[in-house]
Design a protein around this nucleic acid. Sequence first.
RNA 1: GGGCGGUUAGCUCAGCGGUAGAGCACUACGUUGACAUCGUAGGGGUCACUGGUUCGAUCCCAGUACCGCCCACCA
Length: 1024
Amino acid sequence: MLDSRFDPSAAEARLYKRWEELGCFTPSMDTAAEPYCIVIPPPNVTGVLHMGHALNHTLQDVLVRFERMRGKNVLWQPGTDHAGIATQMVVERELAKEGKKRTDLTRDEFTAKVWQWKAQSGGQIVEQDKRLGVSADWSRERFTMDEGLSAAVRKVFVQLYNEGLIYRDKRLVNWDPHFQTAISDLEVENRETPGHMWHFKYPLAGGETYEYMEKDEDGNVTLRETRDYISIATTRPETMLGDGAVAVHPEDARYAPIVGKLCEIPVGPKEHRRLIPIITDEYPDPDFGSGAVKITGAHDFNDYQVAKRAGIPMYALMDERGAMRADGAPYAQEAAAAKKRVDTWLDLFDPSGAGRFHSPAGETAPEDVSGANLVPDAYRGLDRFEARARVIADITADGNAVMVEGEDGAMVPLVEDKVIMQPFGDRSGVVIEPMLTDQWFVNAEELSKEARAAVADGRTDFVPENWSKTYFNWLDNIEPWCISRQLWWGHRIPVWYGRSLSGDPNTLVITYNEQLGPVDGRQIFCASSESEALELAAEYARKELRLDEVDAFVSDESTVNRIDMTNSGQVPFQYPIVQDPDVLDTWFSSALWPFSTLGWPDKTKELETFYPGAVLVTAFDIIFFWVARMMMMGLKFGPKGADSKPMVPFKHVYIHALVLDEKGQKMSKSKGNAMDPLELIDEYGADALRFTMARLAGMGRNIRLSRQAVEGNRNFGTKLWNAARFCQMNECANWDGELDPAALTEPVNQWIAGEVAAAFAETTAALEAYRFDDGAGAAYKFVWNTFCDWYLELIKPLLNGEDEEAKAETRRVAGWTLDQILKLLHPFMPFITEELWGALAEHGPARGDVLMRQSWPRLGSAYVNPAAAAEMDWVCDLISEIRSFRADLGVPAGAKVPMTLVGAPRANRERLTRHHAAITARARLETARAEPAAPEGSVTTVVGGASVALRIADLIDVAEAKARLDKEVAGLNKELAGLSKKLANPNFIAKAPEDIVAENRQRLADGEVRVDKLAAARAGLDAL
RNA sequence: GGGCGGUUAGCUCAGCGGUAGAGCACUACGUUGACAUCGUAGGGGUCACUGGUUCGAUCCCAGUACCGCCCACCA
């Protein structure tokens, strides 16, 4: 006998272990079976199971268990992601506990430490997933840094490089000063932050003046004054030292007189201030600020564009920590040189009115200088925010701040409070600094073409469909993808540098900067291994070197790799190469996940069988990071299909909601509103959490999770458990596992068989359409409302009755139905269903195998018996109506009353006889008879066109009974009036579909009968 | 600024051209031999607003208001 409740904590681990031991999670590899593959979105190896995982993994597990039961050859491919920054961060924190920094170790020592950390405490999420019931094939677990996956990364990189789709470029990138690495656009979070805008005067060179005029819309002059400066508004004064120009709009009349002239940056020692030209560009908005913008190409993305267009030099003022550089030549020394350069620029300036520099050869005109030299000694080494304060103070002290009248009438510097969108690193949380550095980029635009086309032509589709718009929108505006990261943990870029062996001997120097990588005079060898790179290098050197030059190239570097070569077998020389120190963006390897996990680039059986995946299940927040990139890489490198083109990595992308707390807030540790899935599992069991997730996983954008919801679904489990207990107590079992619906004789049994079929049809259709909510909802409704509330109650008389045949049939059917329910719920609630499946076998049929490996029933129309369904509907209606009537009239719940059915057709009189026991029990009746007339002292209601008379006159308040009838008649009459009006409308009759018209006529007719009967009942009450 | 979405019962949300739904909450009654983590019954909605299309609109279309989210961004 079952206990009165299910104890998840005792059962879950045992059941999970059983499944594992039986190998339930590994694909059947049955060649006749249709393959079905889902790759898990790999959680970070540092990750712990949060609600997002719980939802994501539950949904996949539902699909995977469902498809396994449907007989498919299912692989759910699990694994974890090495998560570059996140993992490096964790290990650095560990080191900090020992009082060490990453840089106290060598790179190799550090990465060894990370591997060690991973072995000890990485991947806890896998164990946590097991508690949730995740049925992934753990024997095939992969890690993005595994040797095989790393080889895939290198192969992809090399090929993209060779095709020119990966390239190195010096561009302005997002720099995270905390982690001291470049990051991609997607890793930047723009947030509104309170800030200030300062207004400063840039004096014109040589004290020149001009007439400054402002006009209103009608052309009236509102301000006219003589100025010897141009006013500039900025939110970032600390970058002024790197200004290359001041730009105004070409049609801005206010500044027309001074375009092409020079102005002075009002910062730094007075005698050495730099002069910069005033240029025109479409970028400045005349209506914003002063209409004049300082152009600081190395520190602002907009300015960068302007500087490139106009040939303005860019000066990088900051170091990798975001502090003002301290590595420059003495400032005074630079100043003299700067003067000279200005003269050169002016030669190149086009005075004809275009207000731009020429660059006849299409080259940047002014010579680039190191921004380091432009930082005055006083600012060197200052953090960017300290530098800002100093610059503001110095300019103000100097009298170059724009002044306005303050509240007390005194003149004060003009500083506007302004909310500015500020970029933050999504991991570090520090303000991102645009930095001009050499980085590796992927030509995402090129790769995006096929990725876009595949969704546009339906090779892959999004569910819900409208996420494809988001996908398109991003791809259509895609920027180059910065893939290099200045970290130690990750896939090291498979590129080696050597000296350039041709051209000017002066350039034959590898300038190797720890942070920024080799920057000059290099020769690139991109190869999937160091030995291949050495071969390439050797080939190159042999080609370029002339024997008589060999001596010049013998390296004195001792720490780098060397190749010893013999040119013509005679003169030995050395040609050192050094690998790029950077690693790849984590998402680069994630992009390969759908095929790298299956063994690519080897032609494995797994790849052949399981690629492309059936569906990718993920949340919308990583459509750009991951989904789009998997599409790009899959369509470039994935196994080829019938058309000999690479196939999409998955056919469907199911995008689920984000899990929010009950108030609709995003869960986060810092807000303290995070719910821990493990804690919920401890308290309510994994099934309750899973079922909650499935029921909430509608098509919406977010789901609000509450403890109460989980509790409710735990209660559902208890309900199921007790239903099973009831079946067990009544010896309900289906001994042979079969059921022939045609052989059934009891209507209640015929009916429930059809309801089982309907429930499976509904849940199956819902899961096929990724409607987890509907699938779980249909199962829930069937189990609770149909099976427990009605079927089990209706069969009690049969189980307790004398008719042994009916009893035997009912036991069989109840047992069968319960077995089907366990199958129906298994994808959602694997533990409790498996436990019951096994427990019921103790005093029931032997099961042969675990529930998890049972097949999903396909119950055809043979199971549906419309006559039985109609009969049971009538029985249930009768019971419901009597119960409702009794309750409304205040008949004591315990009172058993006599009931008389009046004016019912013969079929219903027979039904009454057949279900006499059930009806009297459920409706709490003393007697239930069909008679030609209602007996004395009875009060009447109406069911299905017949009057139902209850002899309760002495139990109730007659006035209340009248009121109830009046209320119902009134409501009915209102409805009937509407129907009559509709049916009297010739347009309705003419234009509405026939079945709708017929339905309305029927409703009117039925309603009229009911009104008549109710009126009669009312009259009967009057007579009392 | 560009894009996407929302507004339906007290709450959370389904629905979708033809009688407004669920869960939770609420009210009343109830220990009927599986289950009080339960049962029975009940109350509760001008489906944001304004127009349009239609025989008929919560649903389709246009506009308005408010609320979200994503992307970009004015120095």
